[in-house]
Design a protein around this nucleic acid. Structure first.
Lengths: 248, 248
DNA sequence: GCAGTTACTTCACACCGTATAGTTTTCGCA
DNA sequence: TGCGAAAACTATACGGTGTGAAGTAACTGC
């Protein structure tokens, strides 16, 4: 199962920018790699500068040469992990046939849940309170990856829209109800889509995020013995609600 | 707006169990009160024994006379806060007319979201990664309150079930798919309810939790400018999906 | 070959939970 | 009323955390 890989990997051939910068890039990558490994084994709390440095045979303060503060490292990690999640759901979406919108929704959603269950600590890092005193930067720690997820969801909603739009007759949604940055991505890709369809996409996000989040944080474990079944039921009802005809 | 109150409040008339125990109960209540105040202003991270003690003019170690460890204090706080949440949604549910299931759903859901927006730190404490290294006890930190929330949701689903059950024809849900502890509460209260209705209740939980959680953690802020509108849309579509006839 | 930049270490400080030992206050009972 | 026990609390200490200031060693470009 492909977990999270580090951007700007440790591979040898740096862009010929000189030995110094290549070493620097490699060390940066190793810091991130070690941090992700610590997170995978001990949760986001385990991401501490001292533990990373210990693992690398360095002093904690050495890391300050690569990241101005711990929060910047965490922000970078969130970006990497969120990007990996976006990659996973995008890949699953693309692998399903364009002619079968229901299958694409199922592929997207199952990839989302599977990724979360395989990388629960990554999910907590992205969507929960990550490390102790972390303060996310203005505009969120990983705006691009979040946009990709939302755009992907909007693609799902767009494919379903011909069958679903009758549910949104008399909708009061307006373009001004959404963030311009999101619309910049969405409106060019789907010129005919009304604002209500974007609301539908966000609602779908809420549905899936809610169940997966309850499961990852263990709140479902004390209620149901088969969250998988519950999730599949959710998917079935979602597709039924959207009115998408099944089969190819 | 009623925030969280401490159980066993600081009021004077203790049960006549002697001055010693009364003082002890008062101190315990004050510890919790101060901890909740710290949480409200600085987030769950701010709940530190030393900060509490500082605020109370004590030493941090004095708290060990009241709670065996920090995690036990946190567990108690989660219990109190979760109970306050359950009280809030239950009260809203009861205030709506029994004859209008849609209104009861709206009341429950709006109370849930409102409580979360008024007490975002409490929401994080209950549903997120609370304080740094916190380990929840076996069976969850607040099993009773969680049960109450689920039972309340099941009551909503039960009221809607006559209109909704046709969506669950051919459902494969079985009583063994759910936790016995939940069923002990639910089946006596709603003897005619099939397992699929409990699944519906958990799905509704997921839908509401997902949107509220995304909003509380700020993931919605970068996508939509009016999460309130989105939530109300969710409610409208939920009731439409459930097939409940509107009006009185 | 040497000056300057970079990488890194050392020391320090304030904060955290918590274990141990010691001190003070209070209660129950003869 | 006085005294022994228990309870409440403090003092000290240890290892953990992020981070700032200062110092040292290595590498790079001229």
């Amino acid at each position: 199962m492909p977990v999270v890989t580090v951007t700007g990997s440790v591979g040898s051939a740096g862009g010929g920018k000189g030995r110094r910068e290549r070493l620097r890039a490699e060390t940066t990558a190793e810091i991130k790699k070690v941090a992700l490994a610590l997170m995978a084994s001990g949760g986001p709390d385990a991401i501490t500068l001292r533990a990373i440095a210990r693992e690398m045979g360095m002093t904690a303060n050495a890391i300050y040469g690569y990241f101005p503060a711990r929060d910047d490292l965490v922000t970078t990690l969130i970006n990497d992990v969120y990007t990996a999640l976006a990659d996973a759901v995008d890949a699953a979406w693309e692998a399903a046939p364009v002619t079968d919108p229901a299958a694409r929704i199922e592929a997207w959603a199952n990839a989302f849940r599977t990724w979360a269950l395989v990388n629960p600590q990554g999910f907590r890092l992205i969507y929960g309170d990550p490390v102790p005193g972390y303060q996310a930067p203005e505009g969120g720690p990983a705006p691009d990856a979040a946009r990709r997820v939302c755009t992907g969801l909007t693609a799902l909603a767009a494919a379903a829209w011909p069958h679903t739009q009758h549910l949104y007759e008399g909708s009061t949604f307006d373009w001004s109800d959404f963030d311009p940055g999101l619309l910049d991505k969405v409106r060019p890709a789907f010129p005919d889509l009304p604002p209500a369809a974007v609301a539908l996409a966000l609602r779908m996000w809420g549905h899936l995020h809610g169940l997966v989040s309850l499961e990852v944080y263990g709140h479902l474990r004390t209620q149901t013995t088969s969250p998988q079944k519950l999730f599949l039921e959710e998917l079935g009802q979602l597709i039924k609600m959207l009115g998408i005809p099944r089969g190819r």
